[in-house]
Design a protein around this nucleic acid. Structure first.
Lengths: 220, 220
DNA sequence: TAAATAGTGTCTGTGAGACACTATACA
DNA sequence: TGTATAGTGTCTCACAGACACTATTTA
């Protein structure tokens, strides 16, 4: 019986966190500890264990490489698979890219959090992964409820919705138009309460709240 | 040094062919030769070799399991990855699902071609793969040029476009509306020539032709 | 009061879908 | 001529985007 020459599979995670203070979406990256590209920044990734679920591997990557508590991960989902044989100098490996959203807070110490607009050069083909997946993430916003809720949290303001949308799409929508978009999102409710005013003044934004988060389509 | 317990990766293919005579899109399935589910129908799939590209593995699956010539494959693309550990009774394996389009012709002998609406029960979790991916395929039509061109061929009639759309989406559009949709597809040209009339009579449909196929987004 | 920001209401353009009517084939 | 099918031209509706105007805050 021949031993099957199986390909190694790694799971690389685009860990996204909304920083309400910086008003941007940040991508979690960490310097590599071991040799290929040691010291260089990379997406958190792990080798998929035998029988391990992709989601569990993603949690392991976020926990281990970014030093976060697993409970901070609010949602995960699949992006696509990268299969260039030369993407890892150690030999051919498949990389399944997943996104993971973290509870929106100011970033803790330890991992490096980079604004999506200014991601530093990364190891392996991770620059390409980020570039390829960013439009996919932008497209998910307001369409994929677990993703959107995971990023913004259970309750958020119109101002925060504007910030997240601008971070992902690169374009700041008109508040009026985004409000109508959000009105059409199932499970999202426009409450009557206004949030505290912003530091620079301006009318206090409304608060929105999820009433039902719904199921992610798991894959896709 | 511990030996890494790597997960096996299989590539399972949704091989689609448009049969102009039957006026439907067919899915290629083949009885399994070997033991898990021997004799039962399944999607063509192979174990991914070390360093092998997903597309190459898909071609190998279509060639080997469906007995087709590799040159009949007009386009391929990624769908998603299935990771239930129990999907294969032999042990945990990852399955990367790909689509492949075949030149539109009447189906040859050998593999079984099932209309998308009447796919027989399949081995492994292949029923779930088909069910999960079908809406994704429907969504790709007229948006993803390589996919659409791969399915319909370089030249096709309005009638065939209607048939393919109905097969994938389950709904037959009005010819007028589909015509406008196609007018907006980049690289697709409405020619002046009418095709031969249909067997049952009726006005002969127009011929459409691709002028540029464009690049698939590889993944997604 | 000025600057900043959000919310309300309107207008326009695009695209999907439904459909009436016309055109062209076969039986 | 009747049936079947495709093509042309409208009409409506939903939604995205732009924007004027109003509301509410800080400086």
């Amino acid at each position: 019986m021949a031993v099957i020459e199986s390909t190694l599979v790694s799971v690389d995670v685009l860990a996204l966190r909304f920083d309400p203070d910086a008003r941007t979406v940040l991508l979690g990256v960490a310097p590599r500890a071991l040799d290929p590209f040691a010291g260089r920044l990379a997406l958190p990734g792990v080798l998929l264990g035998r029988g391990e679920r992709l989601r569990d591997a993603a949690l392991r990557a976020v926990t281990g490489k970014l030093g976060l508590d697993g409970s901070a991960v609010s949602a995960t989902g699949q992006l696509r698979t990268f299969d260039e044989p030369s993407r890892d100098p150690r030999g051919p490996t498949l990389s399944v890219a997943l996104w993971a959203t973290l509870e929106p807070t100011a970033p803790a110490d330890g991992p490096t959090w980079a604004p999506l607009d200014a991601v530093p050069p990364l190891a392996f083909d991770h620059d390409r992964i980020v570039a390829d997946c960013r439009p996919v993430l932008a497209d998910r916003l307001w369409r994929d409820t677990p993703f959107t809720a995971g990023l913004l949290g259970r309750e958020f303001t119109t101002a925060q919705a504007l910030d997240v949308t601008e971070s992902l799409t690169g374009d700041r929508p008109y508040p009026a138009n985004l409000g109508r978009t959000m009105d059409r999102v199932p499970g999202l409710e426009r409450t009557a309460q206004h949030a505290a005013a912003l530091p620079k003044g301006g009318r206090p934004p409304l608060v929105w709240r999820w009433t039902a988060i719904g199921q992610g389509s798991d894959g896709r």
